[in-house]
Design a protein around this nucleic acid. Structure first.
Lengths: 345, 345
DNA sequence: CTGAAAGCGCTTACAG
DNA sequence: CTGAAAGCGCTTACAG
């Protein structure tokens, strides 16, 4: 084990780090010359360069980028605010964003809003105070006009997964309505007429869109919507159990289910064994191991990698000067039949 | 949709934001008074406060925290470097870290090394140049002495999941050896004597530790280690297929398997149907839906939430002045029997 | 090839 | 209750 020298480390106080001034003094040059060396500017004599390098190493100097950013006026920093790092959809999206923006030389500030609009605002404004060049945000259901002064001031903002209701800004979405329509059509094509829909809190944009897709699919097939086959409770086990009991028992039960997101899909899968004959099932959003379950779970897959990349690209384009009108990009979904959605009533 | 005024936004250039000076001018006070208002210092007259507040709103002023940090000398920023945001183990750990440090008022810089030590170094040193107060790092297999000057300079560093081989610093690990021993003992207790081990690249610390646990378990049970039942290839489908063929066919095949991480476990599950009678299986690291597969997959579960919290707590303790010797904290694992590991040869 | 001065936007330390 | 000056650690714009 390498020993770490604790000399000079004072409790609770940041240790003063050597500055460009200290390096200059030790090397016997001006701070401007040190600046030239650390920025690889031409026209510095080899001997001077050597001396400066030696001083840098001896002192353990590292340029303070905060000072540099202050002087230069831009930070090469982007902010990402999402709902939950632990959710696979967002973590995969995050990875895609991080890879792309790092490649362009940006540093990434991240934060999780936990679906709380107050927390989102705190995070976003903190990032703005740190002068991020741009933001990628999975917006909560609340208002977003607190962002207007920032956007006016030149902060680029891109929203992902949901629009920021009140703001006219670049937005990257899944085509929720078409995706759900395809999934419900699929069930209808197997002869189902009684299809239950388990959504999520209707104030969540995606939940509302997906419900609209469900209604549209039934309408297009000439089927009437039975409101008792619709459940928009948050994905808690008891709520799911109640909804299933309501839909799957009684004289005219549902023969198929469409679930509005993967948490609900998984929640339903855990409950289904208790309900006798298994209804056909199609879920919105893919999840790992869906193919290994028995039967495999048929899903309408989103593409979080592509969505993250698109968001990052839109943001980078803004940062390189694009001043065109806000764009709304919709990513197509893919129906992946695996067995659970291909049974007849 | 709210209109966004694009006036003053120049292509490709950051827009100059109003500063404390602009606010002072508009409010007819000194910048020091503005500073007092934005920092809620006492002893400012209500009238002055009102005037300043009005100017702030009118200009869309937001304090530049970069300047503040430069002057104050500490950044209230922490850096997190991990291997892959998309991996559930790390994304859950990230969420735990983010929640805890945000609650303490820190902003989080994040980056993914993609298991590349050069990339890790870049990220870490970039974070240090931005004067993070502390770092949490999932270290790659490479050297880490580049961090010594930074640590000497007062940057607190905590390593998670693996030690940084050459550095004597706070480290949070799973108890890999004991975890694997418990899992292999479990298989032995069901009568298995031919237990295959599918690990990962042996230069990865956790892979080596887990292999050691496997050997220790067999030794403790008086069983000889058959090297042909050990595979340490990275978790690619073809490599897994080859290893399974080698272990599960022939005159004296393995009757049970221990898989060294969840990617391998899942890879094995995908291949198993092709190999006749299903061997018993225990995997290291839990994964979502392991309980919903048929049979449920028995695992040795780690606790990424607790590990992230411990790492964050160690870091915060250092930041509040703890100068004690480096600590290495080992998190116990939990054997979760679900069916796949409870069959006899 | 090198350096002195000014300035980025704040806070600190003083003074009144 | 308020403000003028200095300074945080760099880079810019100039000068030589």
């Amino acid at each position: 084990m390498t020993e770490i020298d604790e000399a000079g480390v004072r409790a609770g106080r940041p240790v003063p780090r050597p500055t460009i001034k200290d390096v200059a003094a030790l090397a016997g040059v001006s701070i401007k010359t040190v600046s030239r060396v650390i920025n690889s500017e031409p026209r510095v004599s080899p001997a001077t360069t050597q001396a400066v390098r030696a001083a840098i190493t001896e002192l353990g100097f590292r340029r303070n980028d905060g000072a540099r950013i202050l002087r230069q006026g831009y930070s090469a920093t982007l902010g990402l605010v999402l709902e939950d790092f632990g959710d696979p959809f967002y973590s995969v999206l995050t990875d895609a964003v991080a890879q792309l923006v790092h490649r362009e030389g940006y540093t990434l500030l991240t934060g999780s809003s936990a679906e709380d609009s107050v927390r989102e605002r705190e995070l976003v404004l903190n990032f703005c105070a740190r002068r991020v060049d741009g933001l990628i945000v999975v917006p909560t259901a609340g208002q977003h006009d607190y962002l207007l002064p920032e956007i006016k001031a030149g902060v680029a903002a891109v929203f992902v997964d949901r629009p920021a209701g009140d703001l006219d800004a670049d937005t990257v979405l899944s085509d929720n309505v078409a995706g759900v329509r395809a999934g419900v059509d699929h069930l209808i094509s197997y002869g189902h007429r009684r299809i239950g829909f388990l959504g999520d809190r209707p104030d969540i944009f995606t939940a509302a869109e997906r419900l609209a897709g469900y209604r549209a699919a039934l309408a297009a097939a000439g089927l009437t919507v039975d409101e008792s086959l619709i459940d928009m409770a948050p994905p808690q086990p008891p709520a799911i159990r109640d909804a299933l009991t309501r839909m799957l028992t009684g004289p005219d039960p549902a023969t198929a289910l469409f679930t509005g997101n993967s948490r609900i899909t998984v929640g339903v899968l855990r409950e289904l064994p208790g309900y006798g004959r298994r209804p056909a099932l199609v879920g919105f959003d893919d999840f790992e191991l869906a193919d290994l379950l028995a039967p495999g779970v048929t899903v309408v897959a989103q593409d979080p990698v592509a969505m993250g990349q698109t968001a990052a690209q839109l943001l980078l384009r803004r940062l390189s000067g694009d001043r065109g009108p806000a764009r709304r990009i919709s990513h197509a979904t893919t129906l992946v039949p695996r067995g659970s959605g291909e049974t007849r009533p």
